[in-house]
């Protein structure tokens, strides 16, 4: 039993630190660069990504195991995963609007945009390649979402601090953001080997 729990624990933390979906695989870069100018927006987007990532990874696991594999439809898994993600986002939007106006407003435009966030699809595909179980998929999705959120929050913090700095013209905006992301990735390399998951 304890071994099993350790597995969940290891997957969860390695998804946040050692195998951060953004800073080690560079997935989900567009919203990372586009929506990281302010901490508030970054927090909203990060929450939405975490929510969607956790749920879609679990949903995709179920779809993959009970629908795709039994009918030999592996070649369709990209399309099926995307459909699941898009459908989930649509439903989630309606449900959140009903249940909590506040959360809906906070997430705003980001919820629909997440459909095309490649980190979400990436996490689902990693889940298949690494042959996780249902429980592991849940913790992997949650950890990856939180890891993504951590990275975009740090980036937003840095960029908000930098509003007064004079970045050379050609590098302003995306250029400097990519340089920061690169140094952040170097820093995250420090975690390599911390968790064997």
């Amino acid at each position: 039993m304890s071994n099993e729990y350790m597995g969940y624990f290891a997957i969860f933390f390695s998804a946040i630190f050692t195998q951060n979906v953004l800073l080690t695989y560079y997935l989900g870069m567009c919203p990372f660069l586009g929506a990281s100018r302010e901490v508030k927006t970054a927090a909203g987007l990060g929450t939405a990504v975490t929510l969607v990532m956790t749920c879609t990874t679990v949903l995709n696991y179920i779809v993959y195991k009970y629908l795709i594999v039994p009918y030999d439809l592996e070649y369709l898994r990209f399309i099926v995963f995307i459909i699941v993600i898009a459908a989930f986002v649509q439903v989630a939007e309606i449900v959140i609007e009903r249940l909590s106006e506040k959360l809906y407003n906070a997430l705003g435009i980001f919820l629909p945009l997440i459909t095309v966030n490649c980190a979400i699809l990436g996490v689902s595909l990693f889940m298949v390649i690494r042959e996780y179980t249902l429980g592991l998929s849940f913790f992997y999705g949650l950890g990856s979402g939180l890891g993504w959120m951590l990275a975009i929050l740090a980036m937003a913090g840095i960029r908000q601090k930098m509003t007064k700095s004079r970045v050379p013209g050609p590098l302003a905006g995306t250029g400097i953001a990519l340089i920061i992301a690169g140094i952040m990735a170097i820093a995250f390399m420090g975690f390599s080997g911390v968790i064997k998951g």
Binding site: V39, L153, A154, A156, G157, I158, Q160, K161, I183, M184, I186, A187, F188, M189, G190, F191
Partner: peptide, 19 residues
């Protein structure tokens, strides 16, 4: 050695901590 990576990570989160 961890001190070097730790400081880079600290630098990375410093603005967020301030915020």
């Amino acid at each position: 050695e961890g001190a070097m990576f730790a400081i880079l990570l600290g630098n990375m989160f410093a603005p967020l901590i301030d915020y």
